[in-house]
């Protein structure tokens, strides 16, 4: 079967080769346009059949590993979930995620994000000394529902790419990290809310956020990081009022 012109779509891909380039440039590729093909399939076609030097990250192809995030026509997307046919007739503009340094082509440096995540202590903190031998912590379905939404984050960093605050001030701890803190705060087994609040009421914590709301809009897992941040601000404000009004002993 021969393919006609209608069966193809152009990809306009940002290239950066640190050994030769001083700044990123564009390269055009032409790939088959098939109804079931995603942008990632297009890139893999280029890598396999056209230009093996093209670099990009990907793994699962089913929207759960969080590796293949890129800017597609200026919007942060998981490329495994963005269909080429939705961008027809093209060309589709593919760039590395915004707000991160570009290592090569479509690959960004994620070190900053990896250092920020553990700062919110994303693990269950207890104030007792129960061991595994004492048994497990039980939880009702309602208690699970309280934090489940925030536990769906796959660390794809689309929210950081969409956040102008992070773009302008990279010290901002960012949407995913705060949503993750909220995930553990809302967990009935956890007692670490106070410790996390100490981290998040810093200047680069929740107060850095100006509620643009783009993080929530681009999130492929409907985590609603913007909601988590505003809820945190409310909590922080309540703590402030409590600290001001109540005697030391009455504070929790």
């Amino acid at each position: 079967m021969t393919e006609t012109n209608e069966d193809r779509i152009g990809l306009r891909v940002s290239r950066y080769r640190p050994e030769t380039d001083t700044r990123p440039g564009w390269q055009e590729y032409d790939v088959p346009l098939r109804t079931e093909w995603t942008v990632l399939d297009g890139l893999n076609h280029v890598k396999d059949e056209v230009d093996p030097t093209l670099s990009f990250r990907w793994s699962c192809r089913m929207g759960i590993c969080g590796s293949c995030g890129m800017n597609v026509n200026g919007e942060p997307r998981l490329t495994c979930g963005a269909f080429l046919s939705d961008y027809a007739p093209g060309p589709v503009r593919i760039e590395p995620l915004s707000n991160f340094p570009v290592v090569r082509d479509l690959v960004v440096d994620i070190d900053d994000f990896m250092q920020k995540l553990p700062r919110v202590k994303p693990w269950i903190i207890r104030d007792d000394d129960v061991t595994v031998v004492d048994g497990e912590y039980l939880q009702t379905p309602d208690e699970l529902d309280a934090y489940k939404q925030f536990s769906m984050c796959i660390n794809c960093m689309l929210c950081y790419s969409a956040c102008p605050v992070y773009g302008l001030d990279p010290t901002f701890i960012g949407p995913a990290a705060i949503a993750l803190a909220e995930r553990y705060d809302l967990d009935s087994r956890d007692r670490g809310a106070r410790e996390r609040l100490d981290v998040l009421i810093e200047h680069e914590g929740v107060w850095g956020c100006t509620f643009v709301g783009e993080c929530t809009r681009v999130c492929p897992k409907h985590v609603d990081p913007a909601g988590a941040i505003q809820r945190y601000k409310l909590k922080a404000a309540q703590e402030n009022v409590k600290a001001f009004l109540l005697p030391r002993g009455a504070r929790r």
Partner: peptide, 26 residues
């Protein structure tokens, strides 16, 4: 190991006119 020379893209002062949602926010 070769040294990574990552490229930092400058943020334009006009970042907020590029997207409707950014514009509404500003």
């Amino acid at each position: 190991m070769t040294e990574l020379r990552a490229y930092r893209r400058p943020v334009s002062i006009w970042w907020w006119v590029r997207k409707r949602s950014y514009f509404l926010f500003v």
